[in-house]
Design a protein around this nucleic acid. Structure first.
Lengths: 263, 263
DNA sequence: CGGCCAATTGAGGATCGTCAAAGTACGTGG
DNA sequence: CCACGTACTTTGACGATCCTCAATTGGCCG
């Protein structure tokens, strides 16, 4: 199913793993910034895989091999199905993100991961990371930091889901996604969504109809521009106020705006 | 503010750290099960602190020292305040849980932790864990598993919060808390809540009024018994069906129950 | 006993889900 | 190049759920 890219070492260039990571578009988010030549190692990335849009990288309950995945390019969604067959999306993941960090402890995948577009992942041998070699300490340290940051990210997700108003959740979602893309060098106010409205709804705990209406609501407030799956953030401050639970318009303008709510 | 318990080594018994952990009521959840004498080390637990009910263990934005906390007994809530001053509870933590695992990566606490009852925590020097000593490998491995499991737990939280119906969220909350207490040897169907209805509401993304009404609803369905802050689970299967998004009563009984809703 | 805080109960309204239908993009095949 | 089918998205009407505000009850402590 997956189209394996042969290990780079088969090309005969021993150091090409390193240079691969060095030239990687995600900008070394998945590696420590102070990585030295000795710390980097040909065994770090075992192989790369190409996953086509709609293909699964792993399925829920799959046994975790001694490998982790880092997304090189593209994007994934992770999801579970509840007892009614309803999809619950636990996250969207883009280049530089690790996948399956939640599965290390239990050795089984807790969700399924499917590519939202044609993507590439790097396989990282987890057991190798913990082999105890001293030169791997910085990598290991970085990896623990990634684990910790993943906890923080999940907590942010949970925080967002505790918003009572759906508008807050959607604003947080758009801001968070844009921010993560911006961190990787993309435009800080324009994103192309690779997931459907249904996926967004299943992530936010809403219905696709609500997502559609809420997006239109944000558009009507001149906070975003929506063109199919391309979203342009027009007023990031306003969105942040919305996400924080307030209203988008500063207080001194809110009255006149409330009166003239007709287009 | 905190009432420090002097390090056990001050008693002159060198090995008392180990025996402390061995006799700890939480049953070594925070330590690897295959812990050997050599792996255990007098430096593992730096000191213990007693935190009285209502006292803070740390505050949001506090710098993280090179220490982690493991709860020895008692319970905590972690929370943030949003821009409206509204409390958002990110989690409840009981004996055996680590605290501040989310703060390692960023070196700053992302939430405040306050004791819900008189409690004790063990301080674990994080830097020591990563000092690279070979005999610490199992501890380190265990610690990474704890990090991974914490991600999984947060994902479960987020999953619960994606339930559209508040009844599902409350059922999941009760089941999860009971399960965690049962894991530590408490009764599998009776819990004493140390948090207020407001705290529960702030954790579930609801209002205290809704929590109160929903608890009464569960009581009316004979799923739980509620006596102030003591909750007895009468029908765990039914609660699990509710939590999963179905109805509590099996299909063949639901009609007659629906008719006789007058008590 | 009185005051205080937590918890409950009630009434009313806003929000969001449900169901149904129409509109829109995209790929396929003629 | 255009017709067609499919899947996604939007729109509308209606109803259930849950929030808001307010009042009441109940427990705890001085």
């Amino acid at each position: 199913m997956n189209h394996m890219i042969p290990p780079v070492s088969s090309t005969g260039i021993a150091s090409s793993y390193k240079s691969d990571c060095a030239t990687c578009l995600v900008g070394r988010i998945c590696l420590p910034s102070n990585l030295t030549d000795t710390a980097s190692d040909a065994n770090m990335v075992k192989r790369r895989s190409r996953i086509l849009r709609g293909e699964h990288l792993f399925q829920v309950d799959d046994l975790v091999g001694a490998r982790l995945y880092a997304i090189r390019c593209g994007s994934f969604k992770t999801y579970q199905l509840d007892s009614n067959g309803q999809q619950r999306v636990s996250g969207f993941h883009i280049g530089g993100d690790y996948l399956a960090l939640d599965a290390i402890g239990l050795q089984r995948h807790r969700c399924s991961a499917v590519a939202l577009e044609d993507s590439e992942v790097c396989e990282i041998p987890y057991s190798y990371l913990n082999s105890g070699k001293e030169q791997l300490l910085p990598l290991q340290q970085h990896f623990q930091n990634m684990l910790s940051k993943e906890i923080a990210r999940e907590q942010n997700n949970a925080l967002m889901l505790r918003s009572t108003r759906a508008e807050q959740r959607l604003s947080s979602f758009l801001l968070g996604l844009t921010w993560r893309y911006a961190e990787r060098g993309y435009s800080p106010n324009c994103i192309r969504l690779h997931m459907s409205r249904q996926d967004i709804a299943d992530f936010l705990g809403l219905t696709p109809e609500s997502v559609s209406r809420l997006l239109f609501g944000l558009k009507r407030q001149n906070l975003v521009e929506v063109c199919r799956r391309t979203i342009t953030l027009l007023n990031i401050d306003g969105l942040e106020r919305l996400a924080a639970g307030g209203i988008a318009i500063p207080a001194n303008q809110s009255e006149e705006m409330a009166d003239s709510d007709a287009d």
